[in-house]
Design a protein around this nucleic acid. Structure first.
Ligand SMILES: [Zn+2]
Ligand SMILES: [Zn+2]
Ligand SMILES: [Zn+2]
Ligand SMILES: [Zn+2]
Lengths: 166, 166
DNA sequence: TGCTATATTGTTATATTATAACGTAACATC
DNA sequence: GATGTTACGTTATAATATAACAATATAGCA
């Protein structure tokens, strides 16, 4: 399985789920070590849960998963970890879903675009330079300084078009 | 003042605010008459408030403005009107702000992009066909059927770059 | 006109997402 | 080990949005 290729499309139902998670966690550990960031046990576990869900997942869903495994956790517990992971580019927030998803290219300070399937809940992360350049051109015309981009496309993925009820 | 031109950029501080509102309301009334839609007094007033605010405004802000003018209103009051206005393309929802703004091209079923100033709160609505076509191309490559697009760019507008404290 | 179906609004309660405030524990550095 | 800093625990609350049902207004028709 080619992970970097997979990241540019919707995952198939038969792909090796656990390998994705393991790989992402390993990348995060390496990245944090390199950057001198403290990927504490809690942050590590939250990131692992996000990847294990394997699709955008809400903060309170994560919170419930934490408490179900015996950990004392309240909303700030989860939001602090999410903030850390967001700030350091290990996850993305999907604004239109109020949900969080693992980043496929951690470390790079990149602008991502998301294609979100309304049937199966999966999201594909793209990094299309063309979209960026068109936005940059519009911004230039407006005299606008870009800080943050949100590009989220909702619809139906190829797998779900074939399979009416995923 | 050329309204259709204004809509493609950030409004200047000295433009005729009231004319914007009046014009937008007139357009909405015409549109609803044409379409057989009931722009009730409440819906009309909510749309007027949105335009009068002249920048993306939250549901509870609108609710407070309604109650301050003596009307009995609860959250559903405002959300129902917002739903009506959204469904019929008279306003847009800015996902990244949880806020609502008048549409500059009501009637057209168009995909809008928003450039949002983090300093003054103003938002410019664009309808850039290039962005649409790039998204469409990506979608085609993914085999993805697009239902809804969210393109929101946050940053600093040209006016605020000149004037540090608006 | 009055009757009836439908659409709209009122009202109360609650769900969902996120943050404030403050105390405690862990960690790092000296 | 003392001290400053970072992370976490805990309680309360803010901000956004919807569910459910009752009352009212409107539209279309008898
Ligand atoms: Zn990413
Ligand atoms: Zn799908
Ligand atoms: Zn519009
Ligand atoms: Zn501005």
């Amino acid at each position: 399985m080619n992970s970097s290729k997979r990241s540019e499309q919707f995952p198939t139902a038969d792909h090796d789920h656990q390998t994705c998670v393991t790989h992402a966690l390993q990348e995060a550990e390496d990245f944090c070590l390199q950057q001198g960031l403290r990927l504490t046990e809690l942050r590590h576990r939250v990131l692992e849960l996000i990847w294990a869900n394997h699709q955008p997942v809400g903060a309170y869903d994560l919170l419930e998963q934490l408490t179900h495994e015996g950990r004392k956790a309240a909303p700030p517990t989860i939001y602090r970890s999410l903030d850390f992971l967001l700030e350091n580019g290990l996850i993305h927030r999907i604004t239109s879903l109020n949900a969080y998803v693992g980043c496929n290219h951690p470390g790079l300070n990149h602008a991502a675009q998301f294609f979100i399937c309304e049937a199966c809940g999966q999201a594909a992360e793209l990094d299309d330079a063309k979209i960026e350049s068109v936005i940059a051109r519009d911004a230039k015309r407006l005299g606008f300084t870009v800080e943050k981009r949100t590009v989220e496309v909702a619809g139906i993925c190829a797998h779900c078009k074939l399979r009416p009820n995923p």
